[in-house]
Simulated assay, not measured.
Amino acid sequence: MSDRLEVLKTYKTYVGGKFPRSESNRIYRIENPGGKHIANACRCTRKDVRDAVVVARSAFDGWSGRSAYNRGQILYRIAEMLEGRKDQFVNELELLGAKKKNAQKEIEISIDRLIYYAGWTDKISQVFGTVNPVASSHFNFSMPEPTGVVGIIGPDESPLLSIVSLVAPVIACGNSCIILASTENPLSAVSFGEVLHASDVPAGVVNILTGNRDEMVNHLTTHMDVNAIFNAINDSETKKQLDENASISVKRVKHYSQSDWSEEKHENPYLILDFMETKTTWHPVGA
């Protein structure tokens, strides 16, 4: 009897609360550091990027319109679901070459980071909103509001923790997002989509695409319905391309390349504020 061939998992994308294959039906091999074929992932195209932006835009109004307290509850629920699937993520990170102890640490920090940002959802407006002194008989209020649709470009390092650290502050204040996962290490990002699907996150708030990141970056950053870019790639040519593309439609761009995603500096309310716009309201006194 011949040895049994292992059935390798094909990781699909996560768009609009579903797990579609790429529009092209193309896949590519995921290999561990030793060169062993461990899984397959979808290779997304321009059409997949455009579809994800449409879904994210349609989800934005409903998500941003929810109470801040409810968004905090949902982020906490994501942490709960991730806690219950720790073993799965440990196994995936080990497949990608991580040591078990380091994999467990990455997952635990990811859970704690989600809880940190869950606690900020109903405090960000209080802390960063103001009542402005004016000379006329008016009340003048300045309040931060979500930017809109945010494109997130994930790094290759710490494939789960980095994605959590980028997504949590973006959605905490009411934005929706499209994530371009690591080309080399996309498994944890797509599995995180399974966690989102099993939690209370509305469909379309978080969308995850896999494939050749360099092919998709240009399509995402030139799309006129994307309002901001959160980039974690430390490459001068990529940064230059993002800045040039963003200037066409006046997108906000934040470059955030890091060497150690476990550091506490990534738990920072200013990362939430980076993807909010300050809106000022005037109201006459006595009206």
Rank of each mutant, 00 (worst) to 15 (best):
N70Y: 01
Q258E: 14
H138K: 13
V201Q: 01
G119I: 14
I153Q: 14
N25M: 15
Y69S: 12
E244K: 01
W63L: 06
G62A: 11
L8S: 07
A198Y: 06
S136F: 01
V285I: 15
I124A: 03
L209T: 10
Q73N: 08
S182P: 06
L271P: 09
E194T: 05
V164A: 05
F89S: 08
M1K: 03
N91Q: 02
H223T: 06
N132S: 04
K239W: 00
L180S: 14
A228L: 04
N132L: 14
N102V: 00
F139N: 02
K100S: 00
L75N: 14
Y14D: 15
N140K: 09
V54H: 11
G35M: 03
A98F: 03
N102H: 06
K99L: 12
K105P: 15
N175R: 12
S64Q: 11
H255S: 05
S199N: 04
I272V: 11
M1P: 06
A168N: 07
S188E: 15
K265Y: 05
L82V: 07
D243W: 00
F89T: 08
G204Q: 03
R77K: 12
K9M: 15
I124Y: 12
G286L: 13
Q88W: 13
A52Q: 08
L209C: 12
I171S: 06
E106I: 02
D61M: 13
D243P: 05
K105F: 12
K240C: 12
K251T: 09
H266Q: 03
Q104I: 02
E83G: 11
S24E: 10
E94F: 08
Q73H: 08
K47Q: 14
N234M: 11
A287G: 07
G211T: 11
L271C: 09
F89E: 04
Y14G: 04
A39F: 02
K100P: 15
A198R: 15
N268W: 05
D225C: 09
S137M: 15
S2N: 15
K12Q: 12
L209V: 08
E267G: 00
T121H: 06
I248V: 15
L271S: 10
C177E: 10
N91I: 07
E264A: 13
V131R: 08
D3T: 07
P284E: 14
E145V: 10
